[in-house]
Every structure is written in structure tokens, then in C-alpha cells.
């Protein structure tokens, strides 16, 4: 994806936040414009939409033509609603191939901010695995290449730096999830030059608020948030319950929106990457890219309400 994303307009109240004006295609007249929420990547100032898309489990459908077509519709819905960031990994089975097939079907290679990963303990295999993933996605280079779960991170980081310097990738990141190895990640964030980190953060799993998110803000590191729905668990637990009274004021009309807006309203968060296999869920999730965000006190109310359930 090109560095200058023409639709994005910089400058909002929250640090690093931008507003994107684009036609809301759901509107039959096609004329009304709404503002999508976007955030700046601290290391460059480039903005990306604050809701992205994950592919773990949901895009691992093998070579099934029916399911590939269905996932293509999911990606299409995502892109139409203004999303760009797509996250994948060699760990996710056939997901990268399916992302590649969907991009090919939609001819949308230049519409995504491609975020891949290196996932091997062989620290000399960084380039080889990146090349293999590029082939599956069908893109010329990745916007972001991340080290998956800190696996072999020292060796990979060194190579990724060389690759970034030579223009083979645009940004470098490192990931963790499920609250694992936060101490290790904090040390890496404090001592290494990183563009991105990826970590788990949601309305129930808030450990990142204590240390990692403040470090990211201090050090100017963009944050991708995985498992914003706790792998779907949040819906199973709360979906049947009513939304809190504060929801409407906080710009929230569904549980999906509540979960996602809670995440992206943290000022250190750059982008949440929820995953879904369904078009209607994608539409619901992408609604969180628009409208108001909860302020600090509303965030606290949301957490208190969810915890009270």
C-alpha cells in the first residue's frame, strides 16, 4: 500500500488519530460521506484505519472453492467499508493462500496494508519465509513484517532491519498474544527500534494497559491489537445481555462495536484486527470504524458494566 493514503485527513483530538472521509457505500445514494477513524503510525506519520482484519482460523479454508469465494466476500466487505490492514502468518495453515486468492479475485493487492509474520525458530530463514508468504499473498512486498510470538526474535530482527533498509519491507513488528511474555516484550520494546508491536487487548484482558501500551506511547511504537473479542468468547458470554446505558453516548450500538471501540479508543492503540468468517459480522465490526469513540470516563463505565455481568 502506498505511504500517502489519499483519503486520510490528519489531525484529531487524540494523539496520532486521523479522520478519513470516504463515501459510505452502504448508503444507497452513495453520496453521503462519513469519517472513518484512522491512526498514525508513529515512526512515519502514515495513517491506517483503526479497524483491520485478522485471518487466524477464519481464512484457513484450504482449497475449497465455495469457502474461498465466501471469504472473498468477507474481504470485499472489509475493503468496501474502508478497511486496509490484513494480518496473517505462516502459522495459519492455508490462510495466506486464501488471502492471496481473495486479493486476486478482487484485484485488490494495492488496497491492503499487508501485515505478515515470520514464524520459525530457524533464525536464518527470515528471508526465505518472507518470500514464501509473498508468493502466497501475491504482493510484491509486505507493508509490515512481524516476528510471530517472539520466536527466534534476535536473528529475525537483524534480518528484518536489513530488509527494511533495502526497501524489501516497510515496517518491522513483533507479536505476542494471550498476555504471554509481556515482560520479554516490554524489554524488547524498550531496547530495540520497532515500528509495530502486536498484543492481546480487550475489555476483559487489560494487562497491556499497565505496561505495554504506555511503553508503546513513550517509544512511538504503533500497536496492533489481536483477539479484541477474546477469540469470540466475549460474544458467547455477553451477546445475550443488554448494552449498557452509556453505550449510545459512547457511539456504540452493538456488542461488536462496544468491544472494538473500547480497544481503539485507547490512545496507544493504532489498529484492532478482529477476525470473522462471515459477511454480516464483518459489516457489524466495520461499523466500529465510524462515529464517536468512548471517552476516558465512558471507557471506565463500559469496563465496569461488562465486569458486572
Amino acid at each position: 500500500m502506498a505511504l500517502t493514503r489519499r483519503q486520510f485527513v490528519l489531525g484529531t483530538a487524540l494523539s496520532g488519530m486521523a479522520i478519513v472521509s470516504r463515501p459510505l457505500l452502504a448508503n444507497p445514494s452513495g453520496t453521503e460521506t462519513v469519517s472513518a477513524i484512522a491512526r498514525g503510525i508513529p515512526s512515519t506519520g502514515e495513517t491506517i484505519p483503526a479497524i483491520g482484519m485478522g485471518t487466524w482460523i477464519t481464512f484457513n479454508v484450504g482449497s475449497d472453492p465455495y469457502l474461498i469465494d465466501q471469504r472473498t466476500r468477507v474481504l470485499e466487505t472489509f475493503l468496501t467499508a474502508g478497511g486496509t490492514v490484513v494480518d496473517c502468518s505462516p502459522m495459519y495453515g492455508s490462510s495466506a493462500n486464501v488471502v492471496g486468492a481473495a486479493l486476486e479475485n478482487l484485484q485488490a493487492h494495492d488496497r491492503v496494508f499487508s501485515a505478515s509474520k515470520v514464524w520459525t525458530s530457524d533464525q536464518s530463514a527470515t528471508r526465505e519465509q518472507t518470500r514464501s508468504s509473498l508468493g502466497k499473498w501475491g504482493v510484491a512486498r509486505f507493508d509490515l513484517q512481524q516476528i510471530h510470538n517472539l520466536v527466534g526474535w534476535q536473528g529475525h530482527l537483524e534480518t528484518l532491519r536489513e530488509m527494511k533498509a533495502s526497501g524489501e519491507i516497510r515496517y518491522i513488528g513483533i507479536t505476542t498474544s494471550h498476555g504471554r511474555r509481556h515482560r520479554d516484550l516490554a524489554r524488547i520494546m524498550e531496547t530495540e527500534e520497532l515500528d509495530f508491536v502486536q498484543l492481546t487487548y480487550n475489555v476483559l484482558d487489560r494487562e497491556a494497559e499497565e505496561r505495554l501500551l504506555p511503553i508503546a506511547q513513550d517509544r512511538g511504537i504503533a500497536v496492533l491489537v489481536n483477539r479484541p473479542f477474546q477469540g469470540g468468547q466475549l460474544f458467547r458470554r455477553f451477546e445475550a445481555k443488554p448494552l449498557p446505558d452509556v453505550a449510545a453516548e459512547a457511539g456504540v450500538s452493538t456488542w461488536a462495536e462496544l468491544f472494538l471501540k473500547y480497544v481503539i479508543s485507547h490512545p496507544a492503540v493504532t489498529c484492532a484486527i478482529p477476525a470473522t468468517s462471515k459477511v454480516d459480522h464483518m459489516q457489524e465490526n466495520m461499523a466500529a470504524l465510524y462515529g464517536n469513540l468512548p471517552n476516558a470516563s465512558q471507557r471506565q463505565e463500559l469496563v465496569a458494566y461488562v465486569r458486572s455481568l
Partner: peptide, 12 residues
Amino acid sequence: LLMFGPEVYLRL
């Protein structure tokens, strides 16, 4: 480690 959903398994 479970990498896929029920729908995908049944489609096999």
C-alpha cells in the same frame, strides 16, 4: 493449535 472452524471441517 486448532487452526480451523467446524464449518470448514464439515465441508471436507
